[in-house]
């Protein structure tokens, strides 16, 4: 089984390396720290930004002040909300491509069990999206340093690291349902629909005050998008998100093991 799993992992890694999707997702996810840096430049000196044409004369700046706390806050929220979309697109491709390329049938009647192949896909999904999160965080640090914003402290760095990487981890934990919809929907489109639905419903749940009970709203609450997370979420939120993740993993494995594969 270990040999089978390592073979499946090797295959998934090769497919990832040869595809342009990882590059596109990395570029897409770089937008968060890049735009964060741009905002810091603007907030540092709005008049200079206006004279350079970076912002319109009519622009109302309400993003806060140019300091590390603001940049970190932006990165954490971008990781939770942008991550749901970018990571979701990556996961939809990772599982859905087997149907759009019509290669799913080549993964079935093999001595390598389907569980090993799907397990390898989940591992690749987790590692790549985690790398994207770390990339966003590191790029944010580099850009913040280059822009030379004030307010740095080691205490702030510690809490920001937890905020950004934690928001990323919670977003990643929720991806198995995207994998399920890419599998059961046999392509990339159904999971895109699912992504849009969860983003919209997360907004509704957060606005109505039920965000801590709705799994797809929890990463944004964790990131501090609506305020200190201790006020807006509790232990039950972590239990719900982990339970949802396990459900997603289980249903995806069950689908690949038992459902008729006709494509």
């Amino acid at each position: 089984m270990t040999a089978n799993f390592s073979s499946a992992l090797w295959a998934e890694t090769l497919k990832l390396r040869r595809s342009k999707v990882p590059l596109f997702t990395a570029i897409g996810f770089s937008m968060a720290p890049l735009f964060g840096g741009l905002f810091m430049i603007i907030l540092k000196d709005p008049e200079a930004a206006r004279s350079m044409g970076l912002i319109s004369a009519k622009a109302q700046l309400a993003a806060g002040t140019a300091e590390w706390a603001t940049l970190f806050n932006m990165l954490a929220q971008a990781t939770a909300v942008g991550g749901a979309i970018v990571f979701g697109i990556f996961t939809a491709w990772l599982f859905g491509r087997e149907f759009s390329d019509r290669t799913a049938k080549e993964l079935l009647a093999l001595p390598t069990p389907r569980e090993a192949i799907i397990g390898a896909k989940f591992i690749v999904m987790a590692i790549w999206t985690l790398l994207l999160t770390v990339w966003c965080y590191v790029l944010g640090l580099v850009i913040g340093t280059l822009v030379d914003i004030p307010g740095w402290s080691s205490e702030l760095l510690r809490s920001a690291t937890v905020d950004i990487l934690g928001a990323g981890a919670l977003t990643i934990i929720l991806l198995p349902f995207v994998a399920f919809f890419a599998s059961a929907g046999k392509g990339e489109l159904p999971p895109f629909g699912w992504l849009i639905l969860t983003v919209v419903l997360a907004q509704v749940a957060a606005i109505t005050g039920w965000g801590d009970w709705f799994p797809w709203a929890i990463p944004a609450l964790f990131s501090g998008a609506v305020g200190p997370r201790s006020e807006f979420m509790g232990v039950h939120s972590y239990i719900i998100i982990i339970f949802t993740s396990l459900m997603g993993i289980a249903i995806t494995f069950y689908w690949w093991r038992t459902v008729d594969q006709t494509r």
């Binding site: 040999a3 073979s7 090797w10 040869r18 080549e106 993964l107 093999l110 001595p111 390598t112």
Partner: peptide, 12 residues
């Protein structure tokens, strides 16, 4: 070759 290499490994 890479497509076949994937098959070789998946066929153990």
């Amino acid at each position: 070759r890479e497509n076949l290499e994937i098959s070789r490994r998946l066929y153990a």
